[in-house]
Amino acid sequence: MYFPFLRGKQHELFALRDLKDSNVLSGEILPVIEPVKYSTQLVSTVKGLLDDNRKLIMIMNPSVGTFVDDLNDNEELMEEILELMGHRNATIGYYLNSNAALEELPQLVNRCNRTLDETAVFHSDLRYLDIYEVMFAEHEAKYNFIADIKPLKRRFANNNGVILRDSFIKRTPNAEYLNHQVEWFSSDHLDFEQEGFLGFSDYSIVGEEYTESGFGAKAVAFHILYPDEAKNLWVRHFVSDSNENRADQAGKFGEALYKFVDWYNQNETALINTEGINELLDCYKNGNYPGLGMLKRYSIKHHLELVGNMLVKV
Protein backbone atom coordinates (compact mmCIF):
# COMPACT_ATOMS: atom_id res chain seq x y z
CA MET A 1 0.00 0.00 0.00
CA TYR A 2 1.24 3.48 -0.91
CA PHE A 3 0.49 6.45 1.38
CA PRO A 4 1.49 9.61 -0.54
CA PHE A 5 2.01 12.50 1.88
CA LEU A 6 0.51 15.68 0.47
CA ARG A 7 0.20 19.11 2.02
CA GLY A 8 -3.34 20.42 1.68
CA LYS A 9 -2.48 23.12 -0.85
CA GLN A 10 -4.66 23.78 -3.86
CA HIS A 11 -2.78 21.95 -6.58
CA GLU A 12 -1.99 18.95 -4.39
CA LEU A 13 -5.66 18.62 -3.47
CA PHE A 14 -6.75 19.03 -7.07
CA ALA A 15 -4.25 16.39 -8.20
CA LEU A 16 -6.12 13.89 -6.00
CA ARG A 17 -9.50 15.15 -7.20
CA ASP A 18 -8.50 14.90 -10.86
CA LEU A 19 -7.22 11.33 -10.52
CA LYS A 20 -10.37 10.28 -8.67
CA ASP A 21 -12.62 11.91 -11.28
CA SER A 22 -10.68 10.18 -14.08
CA ASN A 23 -10.92 6.85 -12.25
CA VAL A 24 -7.14 6.29 -12.34
CA LEU A 25 -6.45 6.63 -8.61
CA SER A 26 -5.36 3.11 -7.68
CA GLY A 27 -7.03 1.28 -4.83
CA GLU A 28 -3.48 0.62 -3.58
CA ILE A 29 -3.14 4.35 -2.81
CA LEU A 30 -4.33 5.79 0.49
CA PRO A 31 -3.44 9.50 0.59
CA VAL A 32 -2.24 11.36 3.66
CA ILE A 33 -3.27 15.01 3.77
CA GLU A 34 -1.58 17.48 6.11
CA PRO A 35 -3.86 20.53 5.79
CA VAL A 36 -1.98 23.83 5.96
CA LYS A 37 -5.17 25.88 6.32
CA TYR A 38 -8.93 25.52 6.30
CA SER A 39 -10.46 25.96 2.86
CA THR A 40 -13.62 24.98 1.04
CA GLN A 41 -11.33 23.23 -1.47
CA LEU A 42 -9.96 21.05 1.33
CA VAL A 43 -13.44 20.11 2.53
CA SER A 44 -14.85 19.44 -0.95
CA THR A 45 -11.85 17.34 -2.00
CA VAL A 46 -11.84 15.26 1.18
CA LYS A 47 -15.61 14.83 1.10
CA GLY A 48 -15.50 13.84 -2.57
CA LEU A 49 -12.91 11.16 -1.88
CA LEU A 50 -14.72 9.79 1.17
CA ASP A 51 -18.12 9.71 -0.52
CA ASP A 52 -16.54 7.90 -3.49
CA ASN A 53 -15.55 5.14 -1.05
CA ARG A 54 -11.89 6.24 -1.05
CA LYS A 55 -9.99 5.97 2.20
CA LEU A 56 -7.69 8.77 3.38
CA ILE A 57 -5.79 10.04 6.41
CA MET A 58 -5.96 13.68 7.48
CA ILE A 59 -3.52 14.96 10.08
CA MET A 60 -5.42 16.90 12.71
CA ASN A 61 -2.43 18.59 14.39
CA PRO A 62 -0.37 19.66 11.35
CA SER A 63 3.18 20.86 11.92
CA VAL A 64 2.90 23.76 9.46
CA GLY A 65 0.34 26.35 8.43
CA THR A 66 -2.70 27.82 10.21
CA PHE A 67 -5.18 24.92 10.12
CA VAL A 68 -5.41 24.42 13.90
CA ASP A 69 -5.80 28.16 14.54
CA ASP A 70 -8.42 28.39 11.80
CA LEU A 71 -10.53 25.74 13.55
CA ASN A 72 -9.95 27.03 17.08
CA ASP A 73 -11.10 30.48 15.98
CA ASN A 74 -14.35 29.25 14.41
CA GLU A 75 -16.50 26.61 16.09
CA GLU A 76 -18.57 26.00 12.93
CA LEU A 77 -15.45 25.11 10.97
CA MET A 78 -14.27 22.89 13.82
CA GLU A 79 -17.56 20.98 13.85
CA GLU A 80 -17.48 20.63 10.06
CA ILE A 81 -14.03 19.02 10.15
CA LEU A 82 -14.86 16.80 13.13
CA GLU A 83 -17.95 15.52 11.32
CA LEU A 84 -15.86 14.86 8.21
CA MET A 85 -13.35 12.84 10.25
CA GLY A 86 -16.19 10.77 11.68
CA HIS A 87 -16.75 9.29 8.21
CA ARG A 88 -16.07 5.55 8.04
CA ASN A 89 -13.45 6.03 5.30
CA ALA A 90 -11.53 8.75 7.15
CA THR A 91 -8.62 8.08 9.48
CA ILE A 92 -7.48 10.63 12.05
CA GLY A 93 -3.76 11.37 11.70
CA TYR A 94 -1.78 12.74 14.64
CA TYR A 95 1.83 13.80 15.17
CA LEU A 96 3.11 12.27 18.40
CA ASN A 97 5.41 15.15 19.29
CA SER A 98 4.55 16.22 22.83
CA ASN A 99 3.36 14.92 26.19
CA ALA A 100 0.05 16.71 25.52
CA ALA A 101 -0.89 13.80 23.27
CA LEU A 102 -2.01 11.84 26.35
CA GLU A 103 -5.01 14.16 26.64
CA GLU A 104 -5.32 15.63 23.16
CA LEU A 105 -5.55 12.50 21.04
CA PRO A 106 -8.19 10.66 23.11
CA GLN A 107 -10.28 13.84 23.27
CA LEU A 108 -10.01 14.33 19.51
CA VAL A 109 -10.93 10.71 18.84
CA ASN A 110 -13.97 10.96 21.11
CA ARG A 111 -15.18 14.16 19.44
CA CYS A 112 -15.11 12.35 16.08
CA ASN A 113 -16.91 9.31 17.54
CA ARG A 114 -13.95 7.11 16.67
CA THR A 115 -11.60 4.89 18.68
CA LEU A 116 -7.86 5.07 19.31
CA ASP A 117 -7.16 1.90 17.36
CA GLU A 118 -8.58 3.60 14.23
CA THR A 119 -5.94 6.34 14.23
CA ALA A 120 -2.72 6.92 12.30
CA VAL A 121 0.15 8.01 14.54
CA PHE A 122 3.19 9.78 13.09
CA HIS A 123 6.45 9.09 14.92
CA SER A 124 9.66 11.04 14.39
CA ASP A 125 10.95 11.58 17.94
CA LEU A 126 12.01 8.68 20.15
CA ARG A 127 11.41 10.75 23.27
CA TYR A 128 7.66 10.28 22.90
CA LEU A 129 7.60 6.56 22.25
CA ASP A 130 6.75 5.96 25.91
CA ILE A 131 3.63 8.11 25.47
CA TYR A 132 2.53 5.84 22.65
CA GLU A 133 3.10 2.73 24.80
CA VAL A 134 0.85 4.17 27.53
CA MET A 135 -1.99 5.14 25.15
CA PHE A 136 -1.76 1.95 23.09
CA ALA A 137 -1.01 -0.53 25.85
CA GLU A 138 -3.70 -2.94 24.68
CA HIS A 139 -3.58 -2.50 20.91
CA GLU A 140 -1.62 -0.80 18.14
CA ALA A 141 -2.70 2.23 16.17
CA LYS A 142 -4.21 1.40 12.79
CA TYR A 143 -1.11 2.86 11.11
CA ASN A 144 2.22 3.88 12.63
CA PHE A 145 4.14 6.17 10.29
CA ILE A 146 7.81 6.12 11.17
CA ALA A 147 10.88 8.01 10.14
CA ASP A 148 13.87 5.99 8.94
CA ILE A 149 15.22 5.63 12.50
CA LYS A 150 16.44 2.18 13.54
CA PRO A 151 14.71 1.92 16.97
CA LEU A 152 11.40 2.99 15.41
CA LYS A 153 11.84 0.48 12.60
CA ARG A 154 12.52 -2.28 15.13
CA ARG A 155 9.49 -1.31 17.22
CA PHE A 156 6.95 -1.04 14.40
CA ALA A 157 8.11 -3.60 11.84
CA ASN A 158 5.28 -6.14 11.78
CA ASN A 159 3.27 -3.82 14.06
CA ASN A 160 1.25 -1.69 11.64
CA GLY A 161 4.32 0.26 10.53
CA VAL A 162 4.50 2.48 7.45
CA ILE A 163 7.94 3.74 6.46
CA LEU A 164 7.97 7.47 5.64
CA ARG A 165 10.96 8.84 3.75
CA ASP A 166 11.67 12.08 1.92
CA SER A 167 12.90 10.57 -1.33
CA PHE A 168 13.12 13.82 -3.27
CA ILE A 169 16.41 15.75 -3.15
CA LYS A 170 15.50 19.43 -3.00
CA ARG A 171 18.02 21.67 -4.76
CA THR A 172 18.19 25.45 -4.83
CA PRO A 173 18.25 27.38 -6.98
CA ASN A 174 16.35 25.42 -9.63
CA ALA A 175 19.23 25.80 -12.07
CA GLU A 176 21.23 23.44 -9.83
CA TYR A 177 19.14 20.57 -11.23
CA LEU A 178 21.04 21.06 -14.50
CA ASN A 179 24.00 19.46 -12.69
CA HIS A 180 21.89 16.53 -11.45
CA GLN A 181 19.50 15.75 -14.28
CA VAL A 182 18.88 12.12 -13.24
CA GLU A 183 18.70 11.05 -9.59
CA TRP A 184 17.75 8.00 -7.57
CA PHE A 185 14.28 8.22 -6.00
CA SER A 186 13.16 5.00 -4.29
CA SER A 187 12.73 1.24 -4.24
CA ASP A 188 10.34 1.26 -1.26
CA HIS A 189 7.49 -0.09 -3.40
CA LEU A 190 9.62 -3.20 -3.96
CA ASP A 191 11.00 -3.58 -0.43
CA PHE A 192 8.39 -2.49 2.12
CA GLU A 193 6.79 -5.90 2.65
CA GLN A 194 10.00 -7.80 3.21
CA GLU A 195 11.01 -5.11 5.73
CA GLY A 196 7.84 -5.86 7.68
CA PHE A 197 5.80 -2.77 6.85
CA LEU A 198 2.16 -2.36 5.86
CA GLY A 199 3.15 0.23 3.30
CA PHE A 200 5.42 3.09 2.37
CA SER A 201 5.07 6.86 2.20
CA ASP A 202 6.91 9.80 0.68
CA TYR A 203 6.46 13.49 -0.10
CA SER A 204 6.14 12.96 -3.86
CA ILE A 205 8.22 15.33 -6.02
CA VAL A 206 7.61 18.22 -3.59
CA GLY A 207 9.79 17.13 -0.68
CA GLU A 208 9.23 17.44 3.06
CA GLU A 209 10.30 21.09 3.30
CA TYR A 210 7.25 23.36 3.42
CA THR A 211 7.06 26.75 1.72
CA GLU A 212 4.05 29.01 2.04
CA SER A 213 3.92 30.13 -1.59
CA GLY A 214 5.95 30.00 -4.77
CA PHE A 215 7.27 32.78 -6.97
CA GLY A 216 8.75 33.20 -10.39
CA ALA A 217 12.18 31.58 -10.35
CA LYS A 218 15.10 32.32 -12.63
CA ALA A 219 14.96 28.71 -13.80
CA VAL A 220 11.79 26.72 -14.46
CA ALA A 221 12.06 23.07 -13.48
CA PHE A 222 9.70 20.14 -13.26
CA HIS A 223 10.35 16.59 -12.15
CA ILE A 224 9.18 13.29 -13.64
CA LEU A 225 9.49 9.82 -12.10
CA TYR A 226 10.19 6.76 -14.19
CA PRO A 227 11.12 3.10 -13.54
CA ASP A 228 14.27 1.34 -14.66
CA GLU A 229 14.30 -2.27 -15.91
CA ALA A 230 14.44 -3.56 -12.33
CA LYS A 231 11.42 -1.36 -11.44
CA ASN A 232 13.41 0.97 -9.19
CA LEU A 233 12.17 4.56 -9.39
CA TRP A 234 14.33 7.42 -10.64
CA VAL A 235 13.53 11.10 -11.10
CA ARG A 236 14.42 13.10 -14.20
CA HIS A 237 14.64 16.89 -13.89
CA PHE A 238 13.73 19.09 -16.83
CA VAL A 239 15.15 22.59 -16.52
CA SER A 240 15.19 25.74 -18.63
CA ASP A 241 18.46 27.12 -20.04
CA SER A 242 17.91 30.90 -20.13
CA ASN A 243 18.19 31.39 -16.39
CA GLU A 244 19.81 34.82 -16.01
CA ASN A 245 16.65 36.55 -14.69
CA ARG A 246 12.97 35.95 -13.88
CA ALA A 247 11.62 37.27 -17.17
CA ASP A 248 9.61 35.17 -19.65
CA GLN A 249 8.47 32.26 -17.48
CA ALA A 250 6.51 30.87 -20.44
CA GLY A 251 9.65 30.81 -22.58
CA LYS A 252 11.60 29.08 -19.82
CA PHE A 253 8.86 26.47 -19.53
CA GLY A 254 9.06 25.92 -23.28
CA GLU A 255 12.79 25.17 -23.00
CA ALA A 256 12.23 22.60 -20.24
CA LEU A 257 9.22 21.15 -22.03
CA TYR A 258 11.19 20.61 -25.26
CA LYS A 259 13.71 18.53 -23.27
CA PHE A 260 10.88 16.55 -21.71
CA VAL A 261 9.23 15.73 -25.05
CA ASP A 262 12.58 14.64 -26.51
CA TRP A 263 13.14 12.37 -23.50
CA TYR A 264 9.58 11.01 -23.60
CA ASN A 265 9.83 10.10 -27.27
CA GLN A 266 12.86 7.96 -26.46
CA ASN A 267 11.42 6.37 -23.32
CA GLU A 268 7.69 5.94 -23.92
CA THR A 269 6.26 2.90 -22.14
CA ALA A 270 2.81 1.91 -20.91
CA LEU A 271 3.88 2.57 -17.31
CA ILE A 272 4.67 6.25 -17.83
CA ASN A 273 1.75 6.92 -20.16
CA THR A 274 -0.22 8.68 -17.42
CA GLU A 275 -2.75 11.49 -17.31
CA GLY A 276 -0.13 13.90 -15.96
CA ILE A 277 2.28 13.03 -18.78
CA ASN A 278 -0.45 13.49 -21.38
CA GLU A 279 -1.26 16.92 -19.98
CA LEU A 280 2.38 17.94 -20.42
CA LEU A 281 2.34 16.60 -23.97
CA ASP A 282 -0.79 18.65 -24.65
CA CYS A 283 1.05 21.76 -23.47
CA TYR A 284 3.72 21.07 -26.07
CA LYS A 285 1.18 20.33 -28.79
CA ASN A 286 -0.85 23.48 -28.09
CA GLY A 287 2.02 25.81 -27.19
CA ASN A 288 0.44 26.40 -23.80
CA TYR A 289 2.10 27.58 -20.57
CA PRO A 290 -0.17 26.40 -17.72
CA GLY A 291 1.63 28.14 -14.84
CA LEU A 292 3.94 26.77 -12.16
CA GLY A 293 1.10 25.51 -9.96
CA MET A 294 -0.34 23.40 -12.75
CA LEU A 295 3.13 22.04 -13.52
CA LYS A 296 3.33 20.76 -9.95
CA ARG A 297 -0.15 19.26 -10.29
CA TYR A 298 0.77 17.41 -13.49
CA SER A 299 3.94 16.01 -11.90
CA ILE A 300 2.13 14.85 -8.75
CA LYS A 301 -0.63 13.24 -10.81
CA HIS A 302 1.96 11.39 -12.85
CA HIS A 303 3.77 10.24 -9.71
CA LEU A 304 0.63 8.87 -8.04
CA GLU A 305 -0.66 7.14 -11.16
CA LEU A 306 2.77 5.69 -11.94
CA VAL A 307 3.24 4.23 -8.46
CA GLY A 308 -0.29 2.83 -8.59
CA ASN A 309 0.61 1.14 -11.88
CA MET A 310 3.85 -0.17 -10.40
CA LEU A 311 2.09 -1.75 -7.41
CA VAL A 312 -0.27 -3.61 -9.70
CA LYS A 313 2.66 -4.93 -11.73
CA VAL A 314 5.13 -5.73 -8.90
Rank of each mutant, 00 (worst) to 15 (best):
D125T: 05
G276I: 01
Y95L: 11
H189F: 09
F200W: 15
E208N: 08
L178M: 13
A15I: 04
P4S: 05
S98C: 05
E275T: 13
M85Q: 11
K218W: 02
F136A: 08
I149A: 03
Y226P: 00
V43I: 13
E140M: 09
L19F: 12
F200I: 04
F185R: 08
V261D: 14
L42M: 07
N110A: 15
V261S: 09
K301F: 01
G216L: 11
E195D: 15
N160R: 10
R17P: 05
N97S: 15
G276V: 01
P290H: 06
F5I: 06
A137K: 10
Y128P: 00
S124W: 13
V64C: 07
S240G: 04
G161Y: 04
M58R: 01
A230S: 15
F122K: 00
D282E: 15
V307R: 02
A256G: 02
R114F: 09
V134D: 14
K252D: 09
N309I: 01
G254T: 11
N89K: 13
Y203M: 09
F192H: 11
K231Y: 12
K285V: 07
N99S: 12
T274S: 13
Q181P: 15
E275Q: 12
P173L: 04
F253E: 07
G196I: 03
D148T: 00
L96V: 05
R88A: 14
E244K: 10
G65P: 05
A120M: 05
V32E: 04
L306M: 04
W234S: 09
M310V: 00
D21R: 05
L19C: 03
N265R: 14
Y132A: 04
I29W: 05
I224A: 00
Q194S: 14
L82M: 11
T45L: 02
Q266I: 05
D52Q: 04
A250M: 04
H189C: 04
Y94D: 08
D241G: 01
N74A: 02
A175V: 09
H11E: 15
R246K: 14
Q181L: 14
R165C: 14
L6M: 07
L6R: 01
Y210K: 01
A147I: 07
R88M: 08
E268G: 02
